[in-house]
Nucleic acid binder design. Sequence first.
DNA 1: CACGCCGTATGAAACATTTCAAACATCCTG
DNA 2: CAGGATGTTTGAAATGTTTCATACGGCGTG
Lengths: 344, 344
Amino acid sequence: MVNGRTPSVKDVARSAGVSLGTVSNVMNRPEVVSPTTRERVERAMVELGFVRNESARQLRAGTSRTLAYVMLDGSNPFFHDVSQGIELAAEEADLSLFICNSNGRSEREEVLLDRLMQQRVQGILITPVNPDAPHLAEISRRGIPVVIVDRVGAGGLFCSVAVDDVLGGRIAVEHLAEQGHTRVAVVGGPESIGQVRERVEGARQIWAELGLPPEDLTYLPTAGLTVAEGRSAGERLAGIPARRRPTAAFCANDLLALGLLQQSIGAGLRVPEELAIVGFDDIEFAAAAAVPLTSVRQPRQELGRAAAQLVLDEATNPDHVHQQPLFVPELVARASTVVRSRSY
Amino acid sequence: MVNGRTPSVKDVARSAGVSLGTVSNVMNRPEVVSPTTRERVERAMVELGFVRNESARQLRAGTSRTLAYVMLDGSNPFFHDVSQGIELAAEEADLSLFICNSNGRSEREEVLLDRLMQQRVQGILITPVNPDAPHLAEISRRGIPVVIVDRVGAGGLFCSVAVDDVLGGRIAVEHLAEQGHTRVAVVGGPESIGQVRERVEGARQIWAELGLPPEDLTYLPTAGLTVAEGRSAGERLAGIPARRRPTAAFCANDLLALGLLQQSIGAGLRVPEELAIVGFDDIEFAAAAAVPLTSVRQPRQELGRAAAQLVLDEATNPDHVHQQPLFVPELVARASTVVRSRSY
DNA sequence: CACGCCGTATGAAACATTTCAAACATCCTG
DNA sequence: CAGGATGTTTGAAATGTTTCATACGGCGTG
């Protein structure tokens, strides 16, 4: 440490008067080395300020101690809650977690994945731009465990952990119907996002099953799942003549719902009396909105934790078989749909 | 790739009929190798599915291609915006970014830092639990650049990038005073957090300078900077007899402000008529609240970007000198303080 | 033709660790 | 006291790159 260079095992060995192998043993199998030498080595380590070089360890061992999570959208708190769950599981397994963010851009995603392969991470968790993209399969074929988070990969090629989005759409709209709404808007997009497609699909299914006329379920497409898009949807909604205007809206995620909520209140609409709103994800800010938001809860941390466990199983268990557990979403009713409820 | 093992440079060399060194040259200094052999090597690489082993590279080169950011609180969107700025700068410099989260726990922070040292990261950006903690100085002494983000390190030991929190507190309260408020609450805590101390300090300063009586500036301490704490502060605020109750509140961050806003509206208070609220940070959700939140804006992405540039300079420029640039915060007035303004 | 030069290609050394067979020491057993 | 058994330590090999001094081959110059 003194002469510039960070000390290596060799320096520690010399300083403690033992061989290389012994120092390594102190770190990796302390039980085989005698207490006295162990203590001597340990003292030398702190004295020199030794820090193990993980690259060298990894090179020799052939395996890293890192997982990676590639988020789809860093500006959506939902994904951070998921990553929190992953990190908890990683911490338990004594692994580091690399968090990256593709920001929905496919080419960025590819760059990140390439880097992660170069780092020889132990496993990759990803909410992909497109779960069917060939580069994902390619990574998996190379023997690096890949787990799809919040989507179901096609063809059982990977493990995945997701919530039943169709069911989520169903319970959201069913809830609105129960509250007596007969004209409902479904807000979300773009349809290239699988989650959006399925949530909308669920809404349509239950609507039909309840025997309500399809033309009373208005689809308001958006260009993304952001607060700003929610506001813009609100403006379009307000433009519909009052007689035909939906009295409730189901938004494909909470960001949209928050935007819609804000725009509607700003425009003088009373929520939920004149417009009821349901979101999706149940992010923390949903409950904290001025009119607390009814939302379809996904078990966010649990999703992350389960995904991490699957990736670890695939990495360590030779008898691993791919699984695609589907979590069941749950409606959390709050003031944005229920008149004068004190819930939450 | 076929026989299990991932191919190495050696395999590529054999397959292309050249030496190890040549393959390395193709990757690192393509200009010195003739076009024909280069092409041959490149074909062999894709054929075998070669992926460079970053650990080996790093071991030999002695330096990694990664930066790390240790966040203070993963549940606060503010820090994600900062990390977004860092990532942009890292991407430009062709570096990977490791994002971790200490969650405000000092011992977790130490574990993370230790791991990062083992990985031999090129530089560490951190919003520390305590900027004076000895382990930070220790890392820096070892030659790893450390940049403090959103705090100023003591004694000029490190580079740091921060916003003038005292000034931020001043402009927030000055704004409230300009709106005619003469009884103001200051909400925030714990005081162990430097940002909180300084923002409160700024509020007190300007209050005194304006010649207002100190007893009319009520300090409402909180146990953390969360939405829930904001709600709880709101309850305490409501408990104050109306004659003496503050008509405005300055919250040490936006999460508190959102909680306070929600609680107050829920309790039937009109915002801003009966209670004006200013937050701090100007996170995206501040503008998206049902009553858009006035807030003291920090240039979040810019903060991250500047920090990344400093760490890179320290890592590469031998003439580097530590700098502590202070950014100037800016008040963004919205509906939560300004009656019937259409601003934002 | 000898010489030096230039553009390419080579192969060994180095990086910091882990692993593993072998050496060594110590003690016990018969 | 020979022969194991047990417990500890050793030293060399191996991991996949990059670097660097060296070698090679062809070409132009004197």
